[in-house]
Design a protein around this nucleic acid. Structure first.
Lengths: 124, 124
DNA sequence: ATACATGCAAACGGTTTGCAGAATA
DNA sequence: TATTCTGCAAACCGTTTGCATGTAT
């Protein structure tokens, strides 16, 4: 990958705020700095960054794919009302990989835990 | 929901074989019994059944949404090579819901654990 | 100079929807 | 009879891609 201003901007947008944005949301933010940036460029860069393991795709049942600047193992909680995605630390899952290898011979490379429910804000 | 032959057939297809089929795969199977069934009908029914909690949607990063006849809590392991989806029993996750409520006030309604990696068949 | 990235616009593919007619209650 | 469901086809929308131009190395 060569350097590009646009990709750098896109990466910063995703890394700097853990809102787990959609491509469209990244596009809107990127346009503040690069008014002519195209949605295609945003998609291309988000995908490239994911393929290089710099970002991670989050697939939720609600609409579009989201992108995550954190690539270490952690949970995601998705609120059914506001559809925000919250990070949760791993804790309980430590040791899981070994168990799956022992029992199934399944070599875990990454995982994604999506917990749906209602967050404390929306519950009010 | 009124009874319908097509919906019943669709439900049986998803329930009877834990392959976690896509809508397209359900469509192909349903056409064996109802050659004129439309893809729209398959989608409508899969979504209705999911909304009623009779089936569950599985969203994988690989292409289409998949459907699961099991609605109790369990893991999914997705092979990066063959893209098959395997069921794994819960085990380690028991107690998670209480922890999330205590710590975040987050009311879990359901969750989906997607573990990506390479299964023992594909590793060969 | 060469490879890579961009903006634009068109294409793609999975999914949804409007409609007229058929099946169910 | 009133409601729900179906098949069909068109629309939809998030995403990808081809192309000519611009930028990085």
């Amino acid at each position: 990958m060569n350097y590009s201003q646009q990709r750098n901007c896109i990466l910063e947008i995703v890394m700097s705020d853990p809102i787990h944005p959609t491509a469209e949301q990244v596009y809107e933010k990127a346009r503040l700095k690069y008014p002519n940036i195209s949605l295609g460029t945003v998609y291309r860069n988000l995908n490239q960054l994911s393929e290089h393991g710099i970002l991670k795709k989050i697939c939720s049942s609600y609409g579009s794919v989201r992108f995550d600047g954190r690539t270490d193992a952690h949970f995601h909680m998705i609120c059914k009302d506001c559809q925000r995605v919250f990070d949760v630390e791993l804790g309980e899952m430590l040791g899981l990989e070994d168990k799956l290898m022992d029992k199934f011979g399944f070599q875990v490379s990454e995982y994604e835990i999506s917990i749906q429910g209602v967050c404390c804000d929306c519950k009010k």
